Simulated assay, not measured.
Amino acid sequence: MKVNLRTSSRLALVLLAFCSMVAARDLNQDEALALRQQGVILALEQLLQQAMSRHPGSRLLEAELETKHGRYVYEVELVTTEGVVREIKLDATTGALLKDEEDD
Rank of each mutant, 00 (worst) to 15 (best):
T7C: 06
S8Q: 14
R10V: 14
R10Q: 13
A12L: 13
A12P: 03
L13W: 15
L13D: 12
V14R: 14
V14D: 09
L15S: 08
A17W: 14
F18S: 09
F18A: 12
M21N: 10
M21R: 11
M21H: 12
A23L: 14
A24Y: 15
R25K: 12
D26I: 05
D26Y: 15
L27Y: 15
L27H: 13
Q29W: 15
E31A: 07
E31I: 03
E31S: 06
E31F: 11
A32K: 09
A32S: 10
L33T: 14
A34H: 14
Q37Y: 13
Q38C: 03
Q38F: 07
G39K: 05
V40F: 08
A43N: 12
A43R: 13
A43C: 03
E45H: 06
E45C: 00
Q46C: 02
L48Q: 05
L48W: 09
Q49F: 12
Q49H: 14
Q50M: 07
Q50C: 03
M52H: 07
R54Y: 07
H55A: 00
P56E: 10
G57W: 12
S58R: 00
R59L: 05
R59S: 06
L60I: 03
L60R: 09
L61K: 08
L61D: 07
A63E: 09
E64M: 03
L65H: 04
E66V: 01
E66F: 09
T67I: 12
K68C: 06
G70A: 07
V73T: 02
Y74P: 01
E75M: 06
V76F: 04
E77N: 05
E77Y: 13
V79G: 00
V79A: 00
V79R: 02
V79E: 03
T80S: 12
E82A: 10
G83A: 05
V84N: 08
V85R: 02
V85Y: 05
R86C: 00
R86S: 02
K89C: 02
L90W: 08
L90M: 06
D91H: 04
T93P: 01
T93L: 04
T94P: 04
A96M: 10
A96I: 03
L97F: 07
L98F: 09
L98Q: 05
L98D: 01
K99G: 01
E101R: 07
E101A: 02
D103M: 02
